[in-house]
């Protein structure tokens, strides 16, 4: 860090500031499309839950609340780690940031493993529409909608977490190699933004899936 080299920027931009503005705006635009992706599933969920409240409550009671609560905690902690990592990079740190980025990825991986256990349990209980659905009882039919949406929403979310874990590991690696500094941290910022979106989506999923049938 003795002689800060002049900041590089892609040829289509005039200067690094323009490049950074473009990158951040692009990321926000991307996040908006992500919200719409999940939006369709949430809209489908809203319509079906409005039509079959009992079945959705019953379906929700089949989910694993303690697991879900721990997963929520894990994701929130990971988001915090991502935010701290970004701050550290902005302040010129390097070691702590690398560790924090690895921690974020690790927490994300933990989330995925826990969700894997949940899916396994649900498969055993016969709650997977299309693969193994063995429920019986008055609400079984409509409950299938709940689990169909549950797997669609959490499945899509888990894919996003997986992408995020890889992204965080790449960022950690690049940071360890000294690619970022106090004046250049855009990729870390974008990765953190993405990670926060993944987290926020889960903040909506958790009450809709795990809590909805347990109120009152």
């Amino acid at each position: 860090m003795s002689t800060p080299q002049p900041l590089a920027h892609a040829p289509q931009f005039d200067d690094p500031t323009q490049q950074r503005t473009a990158a951040v705006l692009g990321m926000w635009a991307f996040l908006v499309t992500e919200v719409l992706f999940f939006g369709v599933l949430f809209a489908g969920y809203a319509v079906c839950r409005w039509r079959f409240p009992d079945a959705f409550a019953a379906g929700s009671r089949h989910t694993d609340l303690p697991m879900g609560a721990i997963e929520t905690g894990v994701l929130l902690a990971s988001s915090c780690a991502a935010a701290l990592a970004l701050r550290d990079v902005q302040l010129g740190g390097r070691r702590a940031a690398t560790r924090l980025l690895v921690l974020t990825a690790a927490l994300g991986a933990t989330f995925l493993v826990m969700h894997g256990f949940e899916y396994t349990d649900e498969y055993r209980e016969g709650l997977v529409p299309g693969l193994r659905y063995t429920q019986d009882g008055p609400l079984a039919g409509k409950m299938e909608f709940f689990f169909y949406l549950y797997f669609a929403i959490t499945g899509l979310h888990s894919v996003h977490v997986l992408v995020g874990v890889v992204l965080m590991l790449v960022m950690a690696l690049r940071n360890a190699r000294g690619r970022f500094r106090a004046t250049y941290f855009t990729p870390v910022e974008l990765a953190a933004l993405y990670w926060h979106l993944v987290d926020i989506v889960w903040i909506f999923v958790f009450p809709l899936v795990y809590l909805v049938g347990r109120a009152g």
Binding site: L41, P129, G130, Y133, K142, F145
Partner: peptide, 26 residues
């Protein structure tokens, strides 16, 4: 994105034989 997700649901519904657009189940 809305179209993409909707088409995904169509594919899922065909594969799983169950889905929120299927009137046979309500």
């Amino acid at each position: 994105p809305v179209l993409a997700m909707t088409l995904l649901l169509i594919a899922l519904e065909r594969l799983a034989g169950v889905g929120i657009f299927d009137p046979a189940l309500g």
